[in-house]
């Protein structure tokens, strides 16, 4: 498998022309996190695919549930409603720690009107801002369908991009803000899991770092990466590197008249099928009712977490073996 020349933007987004410095800057940003993680040729490990030529053996899709497992288990095992409530109880989304954040938009009566789910990195918007803040303003307007958004809404007093701006917290959602939902955290997770020696063991025995984390994503990635590496395989995150919404289950959502809600009410707003970065759920205005009037499994939809529980998030890994004499310039 040839060396990767450049890390692509998540879901190969093309928000700006190909000539923009964004693409190289983004690649450099990803590279800076992964650079140096080039393991020795003998033992497998987590590696930088721009530096090491690996013979592709297979892909591993690492999937997990969007609803924070930490809220669901073990504390709220007998009270799911409490878990749903807790998961969106903060405007800074501090309980949404599965590389998956969402916001429920409610009408005057408090009913959910629309839910937006995102898996976009803050660093992407920061890179864009560094090139031209108006690019970010334009994206916000487009994503949130709101032409009133101004640059001043998105910056702090010294003109830096404010990730906690109101259109990404109290009044909207565009990208991750939870401190833990960063690419750096994910890369460190992979690196630590790859470095854990579990030769000759299996998942019941291995106990990789983060195996005991209360989240779903951390043990999921840690177990899978560690499992691949202990077989002597070299593991990388598949380009374009990103967390994606992979699947959602529309079954069991019913209209007020008891009939099934159509799958078309789910809209991919950013990314593409298989690599969705922003997913929205909303009832068309012509129907005369809102999301909060729907039932899921017979229960009124009162929280975005009820849908998040049935959304699958994914990060893709590739695994391979060292090619004979195939080391790249970084090895």
């Amino acid at each position: 498998m040839p060396l990767l020349e450049r890390f692509d933007t998540p879901a190969s987004l093309r928000d700006v022309p190909e000539t923009s410095p964004l693409y190289q800057n983004w690649s450099d940003q990803v590279s800076s996190l992964i650079d140096g993680l080039t393991p020795s040729p003998s033992g497998g490990g987590f590696y930088d695919p721009t530096k090491l030529d690996i013979q592709f053996a297979g892909e591993k899709a690492m999937t997990w549930m969007g609803l924070p497992r930490r809220q669901l288990l073990p504390e709220s095992r007998d009270n799911k409603r409490a878990a749903y409530e807790a998961a969106e109880s903060f405007a800074n989304r501090q309980h949404q720690d599965e590389y998956f954040e969402w916001r429920s938009e409610r009408d005057a009566s408090g009913k959910i009107r629309k839910i937006a789910f995102v898996t976009e990195f803050r660093q992407y918007y920061q890179e864009l801002w560094n090139i031209d803040p108006q690019l970010v303003v334009g994206l916000y307007r487009k994503i949130l369908d709101n032409d009133t958004i101004q640059k001043s809404d998105l910056e702090d007093p010294v003109g830096t991009y404010d990730i906690l701006n109101r259109w990404n917290t109290t009044h909207g959602i565009v990208h991750y803000i939870n401190d833990i939902n960063t690419l750096k955290a994910a890369v460190n997770l992979c690196r630590d899991a790859a470095g854990h020696d579990s030769a000759g063991q299996n998942n019941f025995e291995a106990g990789p770092p983060f195996a005991m984390a209360p989240t779903a994503v951390d043990p999921r990635i840690a177990y899978d990466v560690n499992m691949l590496v202990r077989k002597g395989l070299y593991v990388a995150l598949r380009d374009p590197v990103g967390f994606y919404i992979a699947a959602w289950d529309n079954a069991g959502i019913t209209k007020p008249n008891g009939r099934p809600a159509p799958a078309s009410w789910w809209k991919i707003k950013r990314g593409k099928p298989g690599m969705v970065l922003r997913l929205e759920y909303e009832v068309p205005a012509s129907e005369g009712f809102v999301v909060g009037d729907l039932l899921l499994g017979g229960q009124p939809i009162e929280f975005g977490g009820q849908l998040a529980e049935h959304i699958t998030v994914v990060i893709h890994g590739t695994a391979g073996t060292m090619t004979r004499g195939g080391r790249g310039d970084g090895g």
Binding site: T63, W64, M65, R69, L73, N202, N203, F204, A211, A213, T215, A216, V217, D218, P219, R220, Y223, D224, T312
Partner: peptide
């Protein structure tokens, strides 16, 4: 069995 799934760990 030993495979991890959407809740993250085989114990689950």
């Amino acid at each position: 069995r030993d495979s991890v799934g959407d809740l993250g760990k085989p114990e689950d």
